[in-house]
């Protein structure tokens, strides 16, 4: 019974992290029409910022990484969000002045370069050995209470981001973003600077992804290159948002929870298969996410919950 509850808590914690990623992408793509295919990069910089600030100094001399300041999580997580935003600013400033597809191309570069940095800069990230011993917030409460408390914390952060995203969407700022997305010339004509608004939305979404990275690092208690997979960190989040309904924050959260449930269930089922078949099942699943994305685009482009008409 307790094992089942712990498994459920694990799944829900990850669903909460995905909800934050999907809310961030919704700010960028759903509200503003910015394509970000480098979600992994923003997740990674947030994860490593939190990891290096909160982990204790690395013990073994052979496997050293940078940082290790032993900060409390509540001091490190805001900086992880800030790191995400800071990564977004220069790239966004260069790519956003032009067509939307140039940003999509540039963000692929962000994802790839962050992966290279994580793998190669051993002095900072520990290279392939990663950063071990990241303390999980609230684990002082002991097993299993600590895990449930952490789930509560993640859900609280996700709820906070949801409230922030809703407030943004309803604010004059959010209305301007939608106006720029729908008709840039008209927005310019009423004196709005599309470049600056887009950049702000891009950075805000990136901050959500950085924060999601910090929560992931705390959950795994370890961060290394193998914990960062573009399939789950970037592609899956796109499917979540498109399935749930881009432009709608509730849709983003619903898509994150539903798609994650399907993903986790298929993982569970695949694990029951014998060795070789389990590997192949992972590829079949990759094929199916691509196909699912197509079918939604073709048959229900607005997703489960479409964007509600603006107020």
């Amino acid at each position: 019974m307790e094992a089942a509850l712990l498994y459920l808590a694990t799944m829900l914690t990850l669903a909460g992290v995905y909800a934050c990623l999907a809310l961030g992408l919704n700010l960028q793509w759903g509200l503003t029409g910015l394509m970000n295919f480098g979600g992994l990069g923003f997740l990674a910089i947030g994860a490593y910022t939190a990891a290096l600030l909160t982990a204790p100094e690395s013990a073994q001399p052979g496997a050293a990484h940078g940082g290790g300041f032993g900060w409390p999580w509540w001091a490190a997580w805001p900086l992880a969000a800030l790191a995400g935003a800071l990564l977004a600013l220069p790239v966004g400033a260069a790519a956003l002045r032009l067509r939307a597809d140039y940003l999509a191309i540039a963000t692929i570069g962000i994802g790839e370069i962050l992966r290279l940095v994580v793998r190669n800069e051993d002095w900072l990230t520990g290279g392939p050995l990663g950063v071990p011993g990241i303390p999980r917030p609230l684990e002082g409460l002991g097993e299993p209470a600590g895990q449930f408390a952490y789930l509560g914390l993640v859900l609280l952060v996700a709820a906070g981001l949801y409230a922030m995203a809703e407030a943004t969407a309803r604010s004059p700022f959010g209305r301007t973003l939608r106006a720029i997305r729908e008709d840039e010339e008209a927005a310019k004509a009423v004196g709005k600077n599309p470049g600056a608004f887009r950049l702000a939305a891009f950075a805000l979404g990136a901050a959500c992804m950085g924060l999601a990275g910090a929560m992931l690092a705390g959950f795994f208690k370890f961060m290394g290159p193998d914990a960062l997979d573009p399939v789950t960190a970037t592609f899956l989040v796109w499917v979540m948002l498109i399935a749930g309904g881009s432009g709608n924050n509730r849709g983003a959260v619903l898509g994150a929870v539903l798609v994650w449930a399907i993903w986790a269930a298929s993982d569970f089922l695949a694990a029951q298969l014998p060795g070789e078949a389990a590997t192949r099942a992972a590829y079949v699943r990759l094929f199916l996410i691509g196909l699912a994305l197509q079918l939604i685009l073709l048959h229900r482009p607005q997703g489960l919950l479409g964007e509600r008409p603006g107020r």
Binding site: M35, F37, F235, W238, I242, L286, F287, I289, G290, L291, L293, Q294, L297
Partner: peptide, 9 residues
Amino acid sequence: ISSFGVALM
């Protein structure tokens, strides 16, 4: 986005 899905397939 659709071509991105094709890439995955």
